[in-house]
């Protein structure tokens, strides 16, 4: 099981012929991910270490059987790349590209919702998705994980890796780790992931890592209260010490007025029945306790 991706996922990398795309595409393949194609209209017919390059995603779907895409291209062309994948029938799109303008993100999100409602876009500006032992798309360092029964969803990439590592330290394993990204309009929300984890028999508990800004964590808390009574949720929120009005690295991480504070989010999650860790190390400790390990 695991969520969104598994051993049958066949990935086309849009941007495989670039330096970054090549590095991460090959790294993902080395982990065991089926990376079946790359795209580049100028290099169709060539290959990258044996991975065939097609002119576009449509060819990759038809000729190589791709059913997921990994987008690692510059911000100015990423929106078009996302729509190209959706139009070609891809239903899982992972876009790690950062610095896509907010208005482009808003247009893409609403276009997918209207024209391609089955598409699950993860990102943009995210670390990617790892189903331990099965499939890794993006930046997640799979070496720090072992296959197991805890799901992770995080806005921040490094905190996702950190929490997977903490699980390993506690002798627990990972089902799927989803980095949803730190941008204002993420394609996949905490709730999308919680919903999938709730239904996944292989996932016994969920770690959710949020940060200041927006109200996504508060919305997730409502979902947890109503739907996650059967699986423990352990949460952590970064940005307690962030001053109002300052962007803390991520475009979405900003406290405006008294909205989006870490305290409000932690309170909402506690009230919903989630355990709240005060630092990343506690995530592992609290999850071990919750699962009786």
């Amino acid at each position: 099981m695991a969520i969104f991706v598994n051993e049958n996922t066949k990935v086309v990398v849009q941007g495989l012929t670039g330096d970054q795309g090549r590095f991460y595409g090959l790294r993902n393949r080395a982990y065991g991910t089926q990376v079946v194609a790359g795209t580049n209209p100028k290099k169709a017919g060539t290959d990258v270490e044996g991975i065939p390059i097609f002119a576009g995603v449509k060819d990759a779907v038809e000729k190589a059987g791709a059913n997921a895409s990994f987008i690692i291209v510059p911000a100015s062309v990423a929106p078009a790349a996302i729509l190209e994948s959706a139009a070609a029938g891809i239903e899982l799109i992972v876009c790690v590209t950062e610095h896509i303008p907010m208005h482009e993100q808003a247009r893409i999100f609403n276009t997918l919702k209207r024209d391609y409602p089955k598409v699950q876009l993860i990102g943009p500006n995210c670390s990617g998705i790892l189903s331990a032992g099965k499939c890794n798309i993006g930046f997640t360092p799979a070496e720090v994980s072992t296959p197991g029964n805890v799901g992770v969803v995080s806005r921040s990439g490094t905190l996702a890796y950190q929490s997977v590592y903490e699980l390993t330290q506690q002798g627990m394993g990972l089902s799927t780790c989803v980095g949803i990204g730190g941008d204002p309009v993420p394609g996949t929300s905490f709730i999308d992931c919680l919903k999938a984890f709730a239904e996944d028999p292989e996932t016994h508990g969920v770690i959710m890592i949020g940060e200041i800004g927006g109200t996504a964590e508060e919305q997730a808390a409502e979902f947890i209260a109503a739907n996650m009574r059967h699986k423990p949720v352990v949460s952590y929120i970064a940005g307690v010490t962030a001053p109002p009005g300052k962007k803390m690295g991520h475009a979405g991480a900003i406290v405006s007025g008294n909205k989006g504070t870490a305290q409000a989010k932690m309170d909402a999650l506690r009230a919903a029945g989630a355990s709240v860790a005060l630092n990343p190390t506690e995530l592992g400790v609290l999850m071990a306790k919750a699962l009786g390990k």
């Binding site: 490094t158 905190l159 940005g239 010490t241 962030a242 690295g249 991480a253 870490a262």
Partner: peptide, 17 residues
Amino acid sequence: IANGAGLAMSTCDTVNQ
């Protein structure tokens, strides 16, 4: 000094904690 915005925020918080 930390790598990644999330970890950098978390580092500030942990120092505070």
